[in-house]
Design a protein around this nucleic acid. Structure first.
Lengths: 209, 209
DNA sequence: CATTATTGTGAGCAATAGCTCAGCTCTCTG
DNA sequence: CAGAGAGCTGAGCTATTGCTCACAATAATG
């Protein structure tokens, strides 16, 4: 499995609609294939087959396999921007609602492509360029959450930065575990976990009782 | 990459000390190689090379690559049994200490082989037999934690089962994230996260304030 | 020692991966 | 409608993988 070309940028930029369409088909297929087989077993031939496109076409838009995953992740990241932060009620007594909004947001994000995070974790040999992008996005989110905590009057916690990191990661991981499970979890179970998760974080943020 | 033989049990059981030694060398090497390269890129040839053993020897003790990971995981699981549960003080006002013991235990467990969990997550195509073993062990642990929560007078939480699952997973994941990070985290940062994690779970378990 | 059982070796096979390239089809432009 | 370039094809090249097998080396046994 050689991959001499370590570029991530496309090999040829589409100039006709037709081309943009096949490029999109490839990406969609790749998302499905990676989700189903994992990164290593999600072969480029399988992706091409699923996209109903020849393997040659695939390599016209992506210089190598890594670039496909990279594009997928970048897209996932861009889609997951936290935009509703400013519309939140930050008056006293609304902490639980705020936390629930955070949790719900995480759930919505994972509905898109529930398995992508697992693949992200799995693939250790991601390019530095991509890892940086992911890292940057992660810090951005944590900063947003930190800001939110700082604004809210109900929050009484020692280290705001650590708290933001802790709850962001905890929410993301628990939601992922819940939704990426092989068997589909019944709705009431999802709600139960959501409630407990919200309770845990809310009580934490409210500080010592 | 064919692997017709799906057995996980060893191909030949060692009868001389010499054999047991090379078997051990292979496992140690495998742990290192998997940790460094991941499962897919951690080739059997690389493992043999690192163990300073010929590839043939490797396949005398393990029928296939999966079996090596299986053995590694089983060993990890067996080592991580929670045995200090009964020595805990369960009188009122000791909840924080109990939670801290849980967290410390998770830290100790991950000092052994910090990267193994990542590989476990990564490898989707583990045999059913192994998955069952892992699942069983996971449930065992959660049951232990649930039992602990049920006994402790300070715990006031709605659903004990969900709570046990939630905190077990949360602790494990956060500790893993902390210790498996590429750069070594300074001790004070570890302590800070430990404190916040303990605070979060303690306040959660104490119930609504 | 001689014999047998156990352990160790590594060249190389079959399968499969990522990826190329010569040549085709389609769309656009004048 | 003809020429040009954009888009598409898929047989097949090369590298690599998991793994085998015929054989050599070492240890146990009588």
């Amino acid at each position: 499995m050689p991959s001499a070309d370590r570029r991530l940028s496309p090999r040829r930029t589409p100039r006709q609609v037709r081309a943009e369409l096949t490029r999109e088909r490839i990406l969609t297929a790749a998302a499905h294939v990676f989700a189903e087989f994992g990164y290593a077993a999600g072969t480029t031939n399988r992706i091409a087959e699923r996209a109903r496109v020849s393997i040659g076409s695939l390599y016209q838009y992506f210089p190598n396999k890594d670039a496909i995953l990279a594009q997928l992740l970048v897209r996932h990241i861009d889609r997951g921007r936290w935009t509703e932060a400013d519309q939140l009620d930050l008056s006293p007594g609304t902490l639980e609602a705020t936390v629930r909004a955070l949790v719900r947001d995480a759930i919505d994000n994972h509905d898109d492509d529930p398995q992508l995070l697992r693949i992200m974790i799995e693939e250790a040999s991601l390019s530095q360029e991509l890892l940086d992008t992911i890292e940057r996005h992660g810090e951005e989110r944590i900063a947003q959450v930190r800001d939110l905590l700082a604004r809210h009057p109900d929050v009484r916690v020692g280290n705001l930065g650590t708290a933001a990191e802790l709850i962001t990661f905890t929410v993301e991981m628990n939601i992922h575990k819940l939704l990426a499970a092989p068997r589909t979890v019944p709705v009431e179970a999802v709600e139960a976990v959501e409630d407990e998760l919200v309770a845990m974080i809310t009580r934490y943020l409210r500080g010592p009782s």
